[in-house]
């Protein structure tokens, strides 16, 4: 049974947690480029990339999306019967090179309610910062998840 009133634990806001790590490899870059149809020589052509701004092939920042990570802090949300990924901001901070070891840390940035045309919604914004082995941030993502009540057969 869905909750009529949004319930969640606001104490998780700001709590940071490591949710996983992975290595950037040339094979992973090539597989990702195949999957999304990437042909930019920065990621696909060693000769062109060598004379480019980074001195060699780098990883497309979206590669962080292709690797599953943990969930991080649980806001214990009890609201609605449907949840979906409503949006995302990806910030590209620094290049990722083959051989880099990337670690992801996440925190809940915001939890808030909003009333729209289709009724009440609860937004959860989770920010993840991916850093390399030197501790330098390389990519940051902010994912917005929405929960709401969906009436069968309705909107």
């Amino acid at each position: 049974m869905a909750e009529a009133e949004a319930k969640f634990d606001p104490s998780v806001i700001g709590l940071e947690e490591e949710i996983g790590s992975f290595d950037i490899t040339a094979e992973q870059i090539a597989a990702y480029c195949e999957a999304v149809g990437e042909t930019n020589p920065l990621y696909t052509d060693a000769d062109v990339a060598k004379s480019g701004p980074y001195g060699g092939i780098i990883a497309p920042p979206g590669i962080v999306h292709s690797i599953s990570m943990g969930n991080g802090p649980d806001a214990k949300i009890r609201f609605g019967n449907a949840a979906f990924h409503a949006g995302e901001k990806m910030e590209v901070i620094a290049p990722m090179y083959p051989g880099d070891h990337i670690t992801a840390r996440i925190h809940v940035k915001e939890l808030f309610e909003k009333t729209g045309r289709t009724g009440s919604m609860l937004f959860e914004v989770r920010r993840t910062i991916f850093s390399n082995q030197k501790g330098e941030p390389v990519v940051a993502t902010e994912k917005s998840f929405v929960r709401r009540e969906v009436v069968p057969g309705g909107e």
């Binding site: 149809g37 990437e38 042909t39 497309p60 999306h65």
Partner: peptide
């Protein structure tokens, strides 16, 4: 997956 659509949009921006 939504993130894959985002990655495709990024790819076009990269081009």
């Amino acid at each position: 997956p939504g993130v894959m659509s985002l990655d495709v949009a990024y790819r076009v921006l990269g081009d």
